[in-house]
Design a protein around this nucleic acid. Structure first.
Lengths: 142, 142
DNA sequence: GAAATAGTTTAGAATTATTATAAACAATAA
DNA sequence: TTATTGTTTATAATAATTCTAAACTATTTC
C-alpha cells in the first residue's frame, strides 16, 4: 500500500500517468525483494494469476516499452527465441545456461572490469555488456 | 571457380549435400575478402541482385541455420528488431552504433581479455561475448 | 466540482518474421 | 540406372509484436 504512492510518484516524475494497469505492473515488477528476469508472457501470467488482474496484452507491451525507455527496465539479449527483460537496471552482466535456458545475473564483482582500448571515433560508450554462455561439458555450443 | 570445390568439400565434410543453392549461399558469404554482418533479408537481396539467383526464402533460412549449427556462421544479438549473422566466426566482440544501427567488429586486440572470477557450478563456459553500445554524445541510450 | 483536454486502455485486426508441410526434385549410394 | 535419402519450393501456419480507432480515465481549466 505504501509502495503504491512511490510508484505513482515514479510514474508522474517521468511523465506517465499512474493508471491502475501501470500500478499493477509496477507492483509485479518492483515489489519483489529480488530483481528478476522475465518475458512479456511471464509477466502477463504473473499479473493474471498472482495479482488477479486482466490487463490487455497491448497495454503490457506499451508499458514495458515505456518503462524500458525511462530506464526502469533493461532488455537482455541472449538468444533469438525469447526477449528477456530485467528489473535489475544496475551495471551488470549475465550467464546464460544453455541447458536450461536460464538467465543468471553476473555481478560486476564476479568479473574484472572490461577494458576497451579502442573506441569508434566520435562516439561515446553507452554500455558494455558481457554475456557468458555456459553448459554442461558434453553440450554442444549454440 | 576454384572456390567452388572448396565449398563443396566444406559442405560434404559436415554432412550437407553441396546443392546449387547452398553453393550460391557459400559464394555470397565466404568469397568476399572481408567478413561481414548481415540479416536474412540482406542475404536474400545480395543473392538475388548480385548473384542473379532466386532462392526460396525457406531455403535461405534452412541453410543459414545449418551453417550456424556447423559453426560457419555466428549469430550476433544487438537489438530485438533485427537478427544479425556474422561470417567472422573467430572469438571477437562488437560495437553497436545506436545512431546508425551499425554493427562493427571489435577485435580481441581492442579489448583486454575478460576475466570471469566466478562461474556457475558444474557448468563450462562456452563463450564470452562483449557488446559495446556507442552513440554520439547527445544521443539517448536505448 | 463539471466540462474540456490530453493521455491511456482495449479488443481485435494487421503486420512481420519465422517455421511447418508435403509434393517435386536432386544428389548419392547400391 | 534405380533406389534411397536429403533438399528445395511455394504456400500455409504460427507466433510475436504493432496498429487502430473507439471507449475510457486522469488531469487541467474554468
Amino acid at each position: 500500500m505504501t509502495n503504491l504512492n512511490i510508484y505513482k510518484e515514479k510514474l508522474r516524475q517521468s511523465g506517465l500517468r499512474p493508471t491502475r494497469q501501470r500500478l499493477k505492473i509496477c507492483e509485479a515488477l518492483f515489489s519483489p525483494e529480488k530483481t528478476f528476469h522475465f518475458t512479456i508472457n511471464d509477466l502477463t501470467k504473473i499479473i493474471e494469476e498472482k495479482l488477479s488482474e486482466k490487463i490487455s496484452l497491448a497495454t503490457v507491451y506499451n508499458t514495458i516499452h515505456a518503462f524500458k525507455k525511462k530506464g526502469y527496465l533493461k532488455e537482455i539479449l541472449v538468444n533469438s527465441d525469447k526477449r528477456y527483460f530485467d528489473t535489475n537496471v544496475t551495471e551488470h552482466h549475465h550467464f546464460f545456461d544453455e541447458d536450461t535456458n536460464e538467465l543468471i545475473d553476473c555481478s560486476s564483482d564476479d568479473i574484472d572490469s572490461v577494458n576497451i582500448k579502442q573506441n569508434i571515433t566520435g562516439k561515446k560508450i553507452k554500455s558494455v555488456e558481457v554475456l557468458i554462455k555456459v553448459a554442461t561439458d558434453n553440450q554442444t555450443q549454440k
